[in-house]
Amino acid sequence: MSATARKTAPLPDDIRGMKGGTPIVSLTAYTTPMAKMMDGVCDFALVGDSVGMVLHGMPSTLGVTMEMMIMHGTAVARGLSKTMLVIDMPFGSYEESPQQAFGNAARLMRETGAAAVKLEGGQHMAETIGFLVRRGVPVMAHIGLTPQSINTLGGYKVQGRADQAKALMADATAVAKAGAFAVVLEKIPAKLADAITAQIDIPTIGIGASAGCDGQILVVDDMLGLFTAFKPKFVKRYGSLGEDGEAAIRTYAEEVRARSFPADTHVFSDKAPGN
């Protein structure tokens, strides 16, 4: 069934069931208006911790807090009825222990209405993923370039080249075996992404990976051209809203200074209409 024909939001098992079928469509969302635009068009919307960089001007995702994720997650939930909501677990909210992860995942789901959480990490997070899934928390995994680990990865580099490929394949296998219902593959070689997609039995969601993945995700502000600080190679801009917005603001400022705005049609007379 197409996303546009769906009357209720899918659940994690529905996304899992899309493996090998019609590609899964996803975007990030941070606000109610943006969520409304993608509702029923995307299969799931991700409240990503990229919100720290995109909306709050942070240099990385490391400063994002649980409170920020809950605030934006709640806002996005208000705009969705036909698209599944997934929310990122922020840095420091799940790495310490499976018990810590469960407490914070339960809080995120309870306070935002999210159907699932996403966390970063492969083999070393498999125990935590299994712990959460067995306790009723659906988990989307995330391997390859994991932005919360940029300080140990040495920056936003392509992952999985040469001798790294075997380890990434092991990461994908581990998270699938642990019970994740899908896995994001970020910034890895296309051939490796295709091999992982063929190897594991859960959907792969690509971002800078391969068109052969089971689905794709982009940061919505990137693809709309709203975020212009930099443009990753894997981003296609489907709009130039940032440039359009800057031009509109300049025109507004010019009209205010020239006193051509507000015009007569934008102000009120002494008498009510009809009097």
Rank of each mutant, 00 (worst) to 15 (best):
M1D: 02
S2H: 10
A5R: 14
T8P: 08
A9P: 02
P10A: 05
D13Q: 13
D14A: 06
R16N: 13
R16W: 11
G21E: 10
T22C: 11
I24S: 10
A29N: 04
D49L: 00
D49S: 06
M53R: 01
L55R: 06
S60T: 09
S60V: 02
L62H: 07
M66P: 00
M68T: 14
M69C: 09
M84C: 07
M84E: 04
M84R: 05
V86D: 13
F91D: 01
G92E: 07
S93L: 06
E95Y: 03
Q99D: 15
A101R: 05
A101T: 03
A105M: 04
G113W: 04
G113F: 08
T128P: 02
F131H: 15
P138T: 11
H142Y: 04
I143E: 13
T146N: 09
G154D: 04
V158C: 12
Q159W: 04
G160Y: 02
R161K: 09
M169E: 14
A174C: 12
A178H: 12
G179A: 08
A180L: 12
F181C: 01
F181Q: 01
A182M: 11
L185C: 01
P189F: 11
A190H: 04
K191N: 07
A193W: 07
D194N: 13
A195V: 07
I196K: 07
A198Q: 13
D201N: 13
D201W: 03
I202C: 07
S210G: 11
C213L: 12
V220M: 11
D221P: 00
L224V: 12
L224W: 05
L226Q: 09
F230K: 03
F230I: 04
K233G: 00
F234D: 00
R237D: 12
R237L: 10
Y252F: 15
A258N: 04
T265N: 13
F268D: 08
D270G: 13
N275Y: 02
